[in-house]
């Protein structure tokens, strides 16, 4: 941090120091603490990590988490792409209305949304009761308390996160490039696959990363809408910490997610500049 030509400490650091200490004490410290616990509890060594290869239930939980997260990411990004596309091509007044609707759904608490879904799609929810009253179904459809329920809740929560980076990348496209493609004889579909989609790739990657990483840590939605049947990592960690008190396993899983996210970011940075991904637009 100190340049050789200037041995004296830049006084600016004094201003930043309290925040550095705060971040160190309250963020970096606990992370190292978690890493430490994962290799020391209940006994020193990599026992918690090797359990990954021996414990069927751990593998099952990780597999469920991964599967749900990937499916949710794919669906959210596709839906988000369609919504962003509609927004970019709407008139400005309409686009602003769409954006405020999006943000309203963005701001509603995850708890409120989750219980709303239960009331809508539960066994005695509005939809099942309605369909039964109309005689369309004889037994309630199992929307909730399973993986489908978790996916519905998670996708609903994640779509706004997917829309925003994609919207930014679409807005940065020069409309003349699309016109140029048409004037050169490309159909609408060809223009989309060969010009439009590649030019929004940075936005799609950013959206997918964002959604996937947030998904990994989801707790409330799988716990409520999965009804205990869809056990994902976050819920399992909570059980280990609060109920079974196996802190070592919990810390190992937390560390695993942390390293997973870091590895993902590293992998992406090999393919594209992360700055352009999270800036949304290419210069």
């Amino acid at each position: 941090m100190i340049a050789p030509a200037r041995p004296a400490l830049n006084p600016g650091w004094i201003l930043v120091l309290p925040f550095l200490l705060l971040v160190g004490a309250l963020f970096i410290g606990p992370i190292f603490n978690v890493l430490w616990i994962s290799v020391t509890d209940p006994e020193p060594g990599l026992g918690n990590y090797t359990a990954l290869f021996t414990s069927g239930s751990l593998v099952k939980i990780l597999w469920t988490t991964l599967r749900v997260c990937v499916i949710c990411t794919v669906i959210s990004v596709i839906l988000g792409y369609c919504i962003a596309y509609a927004m970019v091509h709407a008139a400005e007044a309409k686009r602003n209305k769409m954006l405020s609707l999006l943000l309203v759904s963005f701001w509603i608490s995850v708890l409120v949304r989750t219980f709303s879904w239960l009331m809508l799609l539960g066994r005695n929810g509005v939809v099942n009761n309605g369909l039964e009253a109309l005689g369309i179904i004889s037994a309630p459809i199992g929307f909730m308390r399973n993986e489908l329920g978790v996916l519905i809740g998670m996708v609903h929560y994640m779509v706004p996160y997917a829309v925003l980076p994609i919207l930014a990348s679409m807005q940065s496209i020069d409309g003349r490039v699309v016109q140029a493609s048409r004037s050169l004889g490309a159909t609408g579909a060809q223009t989309f696959w060969r010009v439009y989609l590649p030019l929004t790739r940075a936005g799609v990657v950013a959206a997918a990363l964002l959604v996937f990483i947030i998904n990994l840590g989801f707790y409330v939605i799988p716990a409520v809408l999965g009804g205990g049947k869809v056990l994902m990592v976050a819920e399992y960690i909570s059980v280990q910490v609060l109920v079974t008190l196996q802190w070592g396993t919990a810390a190992m899983l937390a560390a695993l997610i942390l390293f997973g996210v870091l590895a993902l970011l590293f992998l992406m940075s090999r393919f594209m500049k992360l700055g352009t991904v999270f800036g949304g637009a290419k210069a």
């Binding site: 003349r176 016109q179 004037s183 004889g185 490309a186 010009v195």
Partner: peptide, 16 residues
């Protein structure tokens, strides 16, 4: 537009 077979050079070029 894509069936007219007219070439077009845009202001600002509009290269891909």
């Amino acid at each position: 537009a894509e069936k007219r077979n007219f070439g077009m050079v845009f202001q600002g070029y509009a290269l891909f």
